[in-house]
Design a protein around this nucleic acid. Structure first.
Lengths: 211, 211
DNA sequence: TCACTTCTGTACCGAGCGGTATAGTCGAGG
DNA sequence: CCTCGACTATACCGCTCGGTACAGAAGTGA
């Protein structure tokens, strides 16, 4: 919205999106509760009053940073769902996730999980926000697979909701591995196993992979 | 070790294992950094000096609580690996994990993950300890599957290390789901999908499950 | 040039953190 | 029974937390 206001007073010396990216990286690496205001402001290159004037509170800053993370870092995973078949969509989703989780230029793993799976009661909202983000991704996955089911692109009797949860869980597990230092190759090998199994499950829609 | 010392002074009024269980639950629910000394001592029913006399520091308390957690709460998952076939071992492992993650009597999910995937730099040791615990479980899984490979109990060309990582990742993903409130049935449905896929992958060693 | 508005930087706030000194309490051995 | 030693409880330590008051700086419009 009003991002084009005619600037009544002194303009900011920092770009909002840029400092949000820096903040996201700190939350990503240290978790919400581990990320202190000092480390955040240091990484963002601004001081506390600027931070509070721009974002209001640590929690609001986190929400904004997480939203931006979702927009940017998960775009290719969402795009993967547009593959023509369910099999291709699942593989593209898992491959893109594995690449994201181990890509350079940002911390390993996934902010949605490292940000704070378990928090103290006063920060319980953070866990809920992260869980809602993951649930949205899983819902998108399920919607895609549900469409596949209607198109006859899924093995009979396979529940699209359970399949979406399976794929999402695998991806989340890869995030846990990545946070602990697993390499891209490690994760892709796991995806190889998963896709070989899914291919066996539904030979019709998979590329030829006979043993 | 010396649990049978002849009691030189005044005896403790609390049982060490019992208070470790309480401490584990707090860490489990709130994470290492979210768990304050106040909430820990309250849950354990002892005061700070007793805690420090018995365990030395918050970090040592965590290590002890985590060790005990490993002994008790993961016993059935380890036992699952003793199943006669690789297929049965994987299924038993995933089923036991899903049950553990959603069982009553303790917080949902898994301390190995909720305890602190990402911590501030000064608590980086905690993440490492948890990662080592998960790696040990994965190593046990891999050892079992490696044995299966030698016994011809694994499809040709299937890497036991990658398969172990796949199974472990799925289980960790289920833990993430459980932490966010997924039910036992939700997780078991995901296991159903996984086992159906693994069965298709290796029909020989799976129970008949034709659609 | 000058008011006006918004930003920046320093210095600070109360609260809670992890950890401890100290004094009192209580059970066992001589 | 009394001394000893390890326990418990209160009250406190320095420090860092998230958050803010205030004064000075700096662009804009008249």
């Amino acid at each position: 919205m009003g991002a084009e206001t005619p600037t009544p007073g002194r303009p900011r010396t920092f770009d909002e999106q840029t400092v949000l990216d820096r903040a996201a990286e700190v939350f990503w690496q240290q978790g919400y509760e581990g990320a202190s205001l000092s480390s955040l402001t240091k990484a963002m290159g601004i001081n506390r009053p600027s931070l509070y004037a721009a974002f209001g509170s640590k929690e609001e800053l986190f929400k904004r940073a997480f939203d931006r993370y979702h927009e940017t870092n998960l775009a290719n995973a969402r795009a993967a769902l547009e593959q023509p078949t369910a099999y291709a969509a699942i593989e593209a989703f898992l491959r893109a996730s594995a690449d994201n989780l181990t890509a350079g230029g940002h911390p390993a793993g996934c902010l949605s999980i490292q940000g704070g799976l378990a928090c103290s009661p006063e920060n319980a909202r953070i866990s809920e926000i992260l869980a809602a983000g993951r649930a949205a991704t899983e819902a998108a996955l399920e919607a895609r697979l549900s469409r596949a089911a209607k198109e006859g692109d899924l093995p009979d009797g396979l529940d699209s909701r359970a399949l979406a949860r399976f794929v999402m869980a695998l991806s989340e597990g890869h995030a846990v591995h990545a946070a602990a230092g697993a390499s891209r190759e490690d994760l892709q090998a796991s995806v190889d196993v998963a896709m070989r199994a899914v291919a066996a499950l539904h030979p019709g829609s998979a590329p030829a992979a006979s043993a």
